[in-house]
Simulated assay, not measured.
Amino acid sequence: MEYNTTVKIDSTMLVPWYKRLLNLLIDVAAVILIFLFIGVIGVLASLLGSDAILIWFEQMDANTDRIITTLVMVVYLFITELLTQRSLGKLITGTIVVMEDGSKPTTKAILVRALCRILSIEALSFIRKVPRGWHDTASDTYVIDAKKYKAALKIKRSFDEIGSTQIQ
Rank of each mutant, 00 (worst) to 15 (best):
E58F: 06
V40M: 13
T95C: 02
A45C: 13
M73R: 05
K90F: 00
I38N: 07
Q59R: 12
W56T: 11
I53Y: 10
G39R: 09
L47D: 10
V72A: 06
M60I: 06
K90P: 00
F78N: 05
E58M: 09
E100G: 04
L71D: 07
L77P: 03
V43A: 10
L83I: 05
E58P: 05
L71K: 05
T93H: 01
Q59W: 06
F78R: 05
M99H: 04
T95E: 00
L82K: 07
T69Y: 13
I92H: 04
L91Q: 09
G42F: 09
D51A: 14
I53S: 06
A62F: 15
G42E: 11
G42W: 07
M99W: 02
V98S: 00
G94E: 00
M60S: 08
I92C: 05
L48M: 15
T80K: 05
S50N: 15
G39Q: 10
M60N: 06
E58S: 14
L47M: 14
D65Q: 13
A45S: 15
V40H: 06
Q59H: 10
N63W: 12
V98Y: 00
T70R: 12
I41M: 12
T70N: 13
V40A: 15
K90G: 00
W56I: 06
V97N: 01
L88R: 03
V72R: 02
W56S: 11
V72N: 03
I67E: 03
R66L: 14
T64G: 09
L83Q: 05
D51G: 10
V98D: 00
T64L: 15
L48D: 11
V72W: 01
I96L: 03
F57N: 08
G39V: 06
I79D: 10
G42A: 11
W56Y: 13
R86S: 03
I92R: 04
S46L: 08
T93R: 02
M73V: 08
M73C: 07
V40N: 08
V74P: 04
T70S: 15
E81Q: 10
V97F: 02
G102F: 00
T93M: 03
D65W: 12
I38L: 15
T93E: 01
W56A: 15
L88D: 04
L91N: 07
L54A: 09
N63G: 11
I55C: 04
R66S: 15
D51K: 13
L48A: 15
G94T: 00
K90A: 01
T95Q: 02
L83F: 09
A52G: 10
F78C: 06
S50Y: 12
V75S: 08
I41L: 15
T95H: 01
I38E: 08
I79R: 07
M99C: 07
I53Q: 09
M99Y: 01
L71W: 13
G42Y: 07
K90I: 01
A45V: 06
L88Q: 05
G42D: 09
L48T: 09
D51F: 11
L71F: 15
V72M: 03
W56Q: 10
T84N: 09
I41A: 13
I92D: 04
T64D: 11
V98W: 02
D51M: 14
G102Y: 00
L88P: 02
F78I: 05
